[in-house]
Nucleic acid binder design. Structure first.
Length: 467
RNA sequence: GCUCCCUUCGUCUAGAGGCCCAGGACAUAGCCCUCUCAAGGCUGUAACACGGGUUCGAAUCCCGUAGGGAGCGCCA
């Protein structure tokens, strides 16, 4: 029996939570829950230039809104924390010292400009843009001299030559990379802060993370982290690289596709469970059908069923989940969901009647707007072509219907019954003139419940118009 | 440029040499139900990127080609 897994989501707070990252978070959470393990949230804010506190808050909000709860994180500290990399400097210092002691790293005095020029020259010459090793073999004296001059230096990892780095990727299987294809990389910036390869790998190890599911964009970077961990004699987690999420057109998901962040979908009125159910099946397959709860997803999640090919985020598919979620909302939840579009002064009973009537026809809150106007905005004008249908039913039909509405309340059976008795009409012939007179439209939610939401006297008034 | 990853119906995917002239879900078309819409039921259309090999047999293994993507940063 292997120990329970520890997984993590380690976002950088540089913007809104991207859908691809949300999926990564979901998968890691499910992976942990599936086996009774722990799911950690670590904020990777070593880049103080781009990390913004407001983004951290937004990130936690979005994850919470989705229902993705972490066992430990920036707001839930424990012995393994702190969970913000900007607060882990002391721990990093110890590991930097170890690397220096073992001569696994060396100071690099190259300036950003020099490096940029070198990179461009290499690219232009058709060569891989890798660090040329300028500072790799400086003498001890030379290093001391430059340091004494106060030349700022980064710390670079000395990548061993002629070796191969191999690992079994959870998604892609056996991987093998030649160290000769990897340039010496920066582990500590000139300002003393830790660089991604370093802090990310070191934190996974020091936090006891055993399983890392991350974006495929990290696949070719993995050998660097493995090298680093090996030099530090730390245990590497098992890595799985999930294919990227694309837009409906097959291009990387971005703003161009309308929305690429959780926040945007949330603001448009999408339900968290709709989003979650969609993400669950993107790049992952499950025999489970239908709308799933997080617990059900956790039970059914299997890293063996993670796909290797990139998946497209198709809003049409999301809409299917959204409909399903919305149609199953309780009347209370539905009222809350529609709060922004419902008239303010509506009493609870009417609001519930109205919401229950139109819910089966909604996908997003905005879809309720026309019905608010139709039901609460007074007798609606007839749509194109409605006039003829109404006229054809005749004045007697509507006189009987209006009378029934006045005496029996907003009861469709009574109203239709009276109209039937007066006109002899049945089926569509019977109901369509009623629908038109009451809503102005030929299409819409079921009439009976809609009638119940109509303000007092409105049914009679709307029908009497054509008597 | 180099290294690496990927390629099954419109979309998400099942498929780990014979169970596949490729299965499911959603979308789509038709029918049924029905006061309309939605929901529901039934039926249908629709895919192994291409070319070589290996094998009695390949969607599955190997090699190429094409297309897409990532990485090669004092970003993460």
């Amino acid at each position: 029996m292997s120990p329970p897994p520890v997984t993590r989501f380690a976002p950088s707070p540089t913007g809104e939570l991207h859908l691809g990252n949300a999926r990564t978070a979901l998968f890691n959470l499910l992976l942990a829950r599936h086996a009774g393990g722990r799911f950690l949230l670590r904020i990777e804010d070593t880049d103080t230039e781009r990390s913004v506190e407001a983004h951290v808050r937004a990130l936690l909000e979005d994850l919470t809104w989705l229902g993705l709860e972490w066992d430990a994180g920036p707001d839930r500290d424990d012995a393994l924390g702190p969970y913000r990399q900007s607060q882990r400097g002391a721990l990093y210092a110890g590991y930097f010292a170890q690397l220096e002691e073992r001569r696994a790293v060396y100071p690099c005095f190259c300036t950003p400009l020099e490096l940029e020029l070198a990179r461009r020259a290499q690219l232009a010459a058709g060569k891989p843009p890798r660090y040329a090793g300028t500072c790799r073999n400086l003498s001890t004296e030379e290093r001391a001299r430059r340091a004494a001059q106060g030349v700022p230096a980064t710390l670079r990892f000395r990548v061993p030559a002629g070796a191969r780095i191999e690992w079994a990727d959870l998604v892609h299987g056996a991987q093998s990379f030649a160290t000769d294809d990897i340039g010496d990389f920066v582990v500590r910036r000139a300002d003393g802060s830790a660089a991604f390869f370093f802090s990310n790998a070191v934190d996974d190890a020091s936090m006891g993370v055993t399983l890392v599911l991350r974006g495929e964009d990290h696949l070719t970077n993995t050998p660097r982290q493995l090298l680093l961990l090996e030099a530090l004699e730390l245990t590497a987690p098992a890595y799985g690289h999930v294919a990227l999420l694309l837009g409906a057109d097959g291009a990387p998901l971005s703003k161009r596709h309308g929305a690429a962040s959780v926040r945007e979908y949330r603001e448009r009125g999408y339900q968290p469970f709709a989003l979650l159910n969609h993400l669950f099946r993107l790049g992952h397959s499950s025999a489970l059908q239908g709308l799933l709860t997080l617990a059900e997803m956790a039970r059914g999640f299997d890293p063996k069923h993670l796909g290797r090919a990139p998946a497209r985020f198709d809003e049409q598919q999301l809409t299917v989940w959204q409909k399903d979620t919305v149609h199953h909302l309780s009347p209370e939840a539905a009222r809350e969901w529609l709060k922004a579009v419902l008239p303010r002064e509506l009493d609870a009973r009417t609001a519930t009647a109205f919401v229950s009537a139109i819910l089966p026809n909604l996908v997003l809150p905005a879809d309720a707007l026309p019905w608010v106007e139709i039901v609460f905005g007074g007798p609606p004008a007839l749509e194109e072509g409605g006039e003829a249908v109404v006229r054809n039913a005749g004045a007697g039909y509507f006189a009987a219907a209006a009378a029934a509405a006045a005496t029996t309340g907003n009861d469709l059976a009574a109203i239709a019954g009276a109209a039937r008795a007066a006109s002899g009409r049945q089926g569509r012939e019977l109901y369509m003139p009623l629908r038109l007179a009451l809503t102005g439209r030929a299409h819409g939610p079921e009439l009976a419940p809609l009638l119940k939401a109509l303000p007092p006297g409105q049914a009679r008034e709307r029908l009497a118009r054509f008597a």
